[in-house]
Design a protein around this nucleic acid. Structure first.
Lengths: 336, 336
DNA sequence: TTGTATGCGTTATCAT
DNA sequence: ATGATAACGCATACAA
């Protein structure tokens, strides 16, 4: 079913049909209505390929989503982002497809892949931002939006990790804790921000932070948390509360704490980060910093559409999305 | 960069370039090599839209993936399937995009959406298979592959739930248990198969299954598991082992068990289903039936490509993927 | 072996 | 207000 067939049924030209269907001004109201009625009757759908070929606009967003363990689709945080992005993109009239960096058995660059499909913009929620292939993409001129990382000249959406970590520390402080440790994830942009905010907030509160209270762990890895927790608990002046890299990593710490026969939060307090769904099923319920993944995804779609539609003149934005403290039962109240 | 520009540089026609690039036989070896060299030099990429328009093959798979809570992207099982599918599809030369059922603010059917983008086949990993819109898709003639559900005339990949449940029950039996309860998920195709297999296996083992041992719970919902567990534990002749709908749902049961001051597995045993990643971080480690999500996804991509490439004459297959028992610590050994 | 010509379905320009 | 026509980039039937 093409516009040609509709033109025949309506007794007019394909040009008129096209105009009517696209709401061009120079078509009489009656004609436009007749065309639209017939189109609806026969269930006409435009051909995306033809339209893209002609207009060089595909109404597609490409998405890079490598699944290397922790940061993949299975993670509630990224799943939430993807959901928000997908839904908003659909509302805006864009379809999404995956950019894989290969075509059949042939390795191709992300830029080539994106151009091959003619996608209008590219979304990168969780990639290795230092990867040369991705930096090439950032420099290619294709509109781009990243999450929790900003390229020069590209849009980005950032979870408010500064305020997030600050709020978390302040809450723990308000519960009476004065010895707070932070097991942070591997060295990334986000990690550096959180560590910085952790330090600043502690200083602001007049807390001293022994260097041993800052331990390196891994996102989403229980083993690293177990080990770090073990060392923290062995300290002479051990912390009363431990902040973990994220909710999943907390599980490792929890194992170690229980193994030592300690109770949460009576003997030691703990907090996570992310606020992903499944932690609601844990007892005691986890105190954590919820990140608004859905809104992050939605904002990314908005920003990408804006970049595409405004074209070259678009000045890229950094959008910051606040989170929210989820007070659970794992941070106990201490006498001050 | 188009074949025309390459033709100019090579001093030949676009037809020759096209043939050379597509490996047609009727091009001299030298010409072909020259064309390919030039193409590589200038970084030529074909235009997918033009190619699709001409050949009415898009080398795209559409994917339906609604995220309604439990069965969404955030779930390790579906994330695994999607991963496997994506990677294999890329190898086969297909890109994947989401079919959303709307185009801008306009609601359209899945069939329309699929046709609009001209996708060669559609993948449905987790949808409501009774949905009329999806049944319409199944009847549309577009090649289709579903997971854990089979439409008449369409390909499907099924996790071996019959053998999976049987193996799980047999293992629990082998550990000395004779009173095994099964909290199953809401009524779906998969649930019915598992319940059936549970019953059959028990009978085969000579176990009688009191009706109270079969409780209805919910997939991925801890609250339902808590409630069901509570009722099981209150039974006069209570089970020694409880099988949960899945690994996540187990968490609810676990909460209830601990709340009653019971220990796992000393006082009561438990098992899950799925074998998703994060359960490795639980202590005691969960005994569960692992489903090979990756392979399910890979097989689905293979099957869909086969359906597309064989065309109308393709006789659809049902592919069954075995799982594997993951013996953990939550099923204890009982004296027989 | 190579080239010419046509059309895929659409939009856009320019007459009418 | 409407229509004839060209062009988007590619693949292919057919002529040379």
């Amino acid at each position: 079913m093409t516009i040609r067939m509709i033109a025949e049924r309506c007794g007019c030209s394909t040009a008129t049909v096209s105009k009517a269907l696209n709401g061009a001004g120079d078509v009489s109201r009656e004609t436009a209505e007749r065309v639209r009625r017939v189109a609806a009757e026969v269930g006409y759908m435009p051909n995306a390929a033809a339209r893209a070929l002609k207009t060089s606009r595909s109404y597609c967003f490409g998405m890079l989503f490598q699944d290397e363990g922790s940061g993949g689709l299975g993670h509630g945080f990224f799943a939430g982002i993807l959901n928000g992005f997908r839904d908003r993109a659909a509302e805006l009239g864009y379809d999404i497809f995956f950019i894989s960096g290969c075509l059949g058995h042939r390795k191709i660059g992300y830029v080539e892949h994106a151009r091959y499909r003619g996608c209008d913009g590219v979304f990168i929620p969780n990639e290795a931002y230092e990867d040369p292939g991705i930096q090439e993409l950032a420099a290619s001129g294709i509109p781009l939006v990243t999450i929790d990382y900003a390229y020069e000249g590209c849009g980005s959406v950032l979870s408010d990790n500064v305020k997030g970590m600050a709020d978390l520390v302040r809450y723990i402080y308000s519960m009476g804790h004065r010895r707070i440790a932070f097991i942070h994830g591997e060295d990334t942009y986000v990690t550096r921000i959180r560590v910085r905010s952790f330090r600043d907030t502690c200083e602001e509160l007049g807390l001293e932070v022994p260097e041993e209270y800052l331990m390196v762990g891994k996102y989403c890895r229980s083993a690293a948390s177990e080990e770090a927790t073990r060392r923290l608990l062995a300290l002479e002046n051990r912390p009363t509360c431990i902040i973990y890299p994220d909710d999943i990593a907390y599980l490792g710490g929890r194992n170690e704490i229980y193994r030592q026969g300690l109770r949460i939060p009576e003997d030691i307090s703990a907090a996570g980060y992310d606020g992903i769904d499944f932690i609601k099923m844990l007892r005691p319920s986890l105190t954590t910093m919820w990140q608004d993944a859905e809104l992050i995804g939605v904002s990314a779609a908005d920003e990408l559409a804006r970049a595409v539609e405004q074209g070259r003149g678009c000045v890229p934005r950094q959008i910051i999305i606040p989170g929210k403290l989820l007070p659970g039962e794992t941070v106990g109240r201490l006498p001050v």
